[in-house]
């Protein structure tokens, strides 16, 4: 069970506001090695803001984020975020983006990994094209390939399934499982989750606060559901709140 090990990333009482609007409030969460967590919530619930705060893209205003990597002698864990609309170097091809990041990280054995990732994410045949000419789904897959190649300890993905077709979503899920199996952690935000997505835990974010948290089994029991997807959880939790 992933939670048996100390967390790679822990957020304590996280808060963030855009001017007068409180986007996040008292968020506490932990990401453990080998774990895939789905962060579900409606549009505007604060998912992207939370991911940006966790990745250090936004300066924290309240609370703190602790990074530890017990597997590498106390070294701080590396966190990488793939935003929902990644941008690219206009003059570099898809393969050169991978090459640039791999060489920047001093990796020598990157070519096989790069080719495998491109193939797994259905990008083979587009290596020599400029990344800026890609469709939104292809751009997301390339950003994901670059992120996976850089081997972070925790990977945060913002709405990865939105721009992807069904086959690409399956390929992405398989890659994430493979990534987590290496002892790394994944936090995926989504307002809808494809059928095959079965994360270890769900986090429901609503109004900038974590409203529900648990494994699929725990949440099914709590809300009396026969099956559990992100949409089921969202609907059940919000329905329960409305009744209360």
């Amino acid at each position: 069970m992933p939670e048996a090990t100390p967390p790679l990333l822990r957020a304590v009482d996280l808060g963030y506001r855009y001017g007068a609007f409180q986007a996040l409030r008292g968020v506490n969460l932990a990401l453990h090695p080998g774990e895939i967590v789905a962060l579900v919530g409606r549009n505007g619930a604060g998912k992207s803001t939370l991911l940006r705060c966790l990745a250090g893209w936004f300066r924290l205003e309240e609370g703190q984020v602790d990074l530890t990597d017990a597997t590498s002698g106390g070294r701080d864990a590396r966190v990488v975020l793939v935003p929902d609309t990644p941008s690219f170097y206009a003059e570099l091809t898809a393969f050169e983006h991978l090459q640039f990041i791999a060489q920047l990280h001093g990796r020598r054995d990157w070519r096989d990994d790069a080719r495998r990732l491109l193939q797994a994410l259905n990008l083979t045949g587009h290596e020599r094209a400029y990344a800026s000419s890609f469709s939104r789904g292809m751009q997301y897959k390339l950003a994901l390939a670059v992120s996976l190649l850089s081997r972070p300890d925790a990977l945060l993905l913002d709405e990865p399934f939105g721009p992807l077709d069904a086959l690409s979503s399956e390929a992405l899920w398989a890659e994430l499982q493979r990534f987590a199996a290496e002892g790394r952690a994944v936090l995926v935000s989504a307002h809808q989750t494809p059928g095959m997505v079965a994360p270890h835990r769900f986090l429901l974010l609503e109004g900038g606060e974590i409203r529900a948290e648990g494994t699929a089994q725990e949440l099914k029991l709590r809300y009396g559901l026969a099956s559990l997807s992100g949409e089921d959880l969202l609907r059940a939790a919000l329905h329960g709140e409305a009744e209360a």
């Binding site: 003059e91 570099l92 091809t93 050169e96 640039f100 020599r128 400029y130 800026s132 000419s133």
Partner: peptide
């Protein structure tokens, strides 16, 4: 830049 380059073939290499 992106609109122009998307029609061109890349030359030289990294």
């Amino acid at each position: 830049r992106a609109a122009i380059l998307s029609r061109r073939r890349p030359y030289l290499a990294l």
